[in-house]
Simulated assay, not measured.
Amino acid sequence: MAGRNREFDEDKALAAATEVFWTKGYESASMEDLLQAMDLNKGSMYNAFGSKRELFIQVIDHFFRKEGVLIRALFEQHKNPIKAFKEIFRQVTQPADMKAHTKGCFLVNTLGEMSGMDEELAALARHKLLDVETIYLHYIKKGVKEGYITNEASPETLAKYLVNMWNGMSISRRMYGRKELEKLVELQLGVLQPA
């Protein structure tokens, strides 16, 4: 016998839960906050997603799947990967809305909050950031092979550098305005094509 069809949009529910966790953090997000944002009752939420912790794990997976697609799409739009990197990092300096700008990176926030508190959730966020590094590494190697990236450091080190830069920008965007951030992005990405 087939199960009942869900009477809600799972993607929308996960996106709403992401917003709550991203804004409040895992610990401060209450079940009431989540149920209200997701427009679900307790029974539907538990049947579809399980506990708050299980929901959070699904939120992280859902968030990264969407972000991973967007990151890869940016690289596929540009023959020169440096242009894609500039676009990725310029999104930090030119937010669609200021609320998003001050929230920082969801994965970086999660890693910071969960480290020392819940190592399994911290490891999940860490692995997603390492997956970003893997995407960067692929396109850095391509950029080196095609002559766009001329830094003599290994592609692996450059990929780590860019993830480190992203982690730092997630904090810096809460400190500086657009012009200052744009200057930082240009300066830091200059490492890919040293003079």
Rank of each mutant, 00 (worst) to 15 (best):
K160S: 12
W22C: 02
E152G: 04
L192S: 06
R90F: 05
L107S: 06
I71N: 07
R126I: 01
M175P: 02
L158D: 05
N5I: 04
K83F: 02
Y148K: 03
K66M: 08
G177C: 05
Y148C: 05
T134K: 13
R72G: 14
F89W: 08
V144Y: 04
H101A: 12
D131E: 15
E27G: 06
V185N: 03
E120N: 05
G68K: 11
E119D: 11
E182C: 07
Y46W: 14
C105N: 13
I135L: 10
R4V: 15
I135V: 15
G190C: 04
Y136P: 11
K66A: 13
L70H: 13
L121C: 06
R6N: 10
Q58W: 03
F89R: 05
K183F: 15
Y46K: 00
Q58T: 06
Y161W: 06
M98C: 03
G3T: 15
H138P: 00
L34S: 05
C105Q: 06
K12V: 08
K142F: 02
E119W: 12
N5K: 12
L137G: 12
L55G: 02
R178I: 10
A96H: 07
M114Y: 00
E10H: 09
M169P: 00
D118G: 06
K42R: 13
E146V: 03
D61R: 15
T102S: 09
K103A: 11
Y26H: 06
T134R: 14
F49P: 04
A153E: 08
A122H: 02
A159P: 00
M98D: 07
K66N: 05
L181S: 04
E76P: 03
F21G: 01
R6P: 12
A73G: 14
V191Y: 01
V108E: 09
Q193L: 07
F89L: 12
G147Q: 08
I60S: 02
R4K: 15
R126G: 09
V59G: 11
Y46S: 01
R53E: 13
K83P: 00
L14R: 02
N164P: 00
I71L: 13
T23L: 04
T134S: 13
H127W: 09
F21I: 03
R173S: 02
T93G: 08
T23Q: 06
P81R: 02
G112V: 13
P95Q: 12
L124S: 05
A13D: 04
I135P: 15
S172W: 10
A153C: 03
I149L: 13
E119R: 01
L74T: 15
A2Y: 15
Q58R: 10
L121S: 07
T110D: 04
E54L: 10
E152M: 04
R6G: 11
I171D: 11
L129S: 04
V59P: 01
Q193I: 11
D97P: 01
L111V: 00
K99T: 10
P155H: 12
T102W: 15
I88A: 09
Y148P: 08
K160G: 04
I60T: 05
L130Y: 15
A2V: 08
H101M: 05
H101T: 09
I71V: 14
D61V: 10
A122W: 01
G116P: 14
K103W: 09
A153V: 00
G43P: 02
L158P: 02
S44M: 03
Q188M: 06
L129H: 01
A2N: 10
N5E: 14
S44A: 14
V144P: 00
P194D: 07
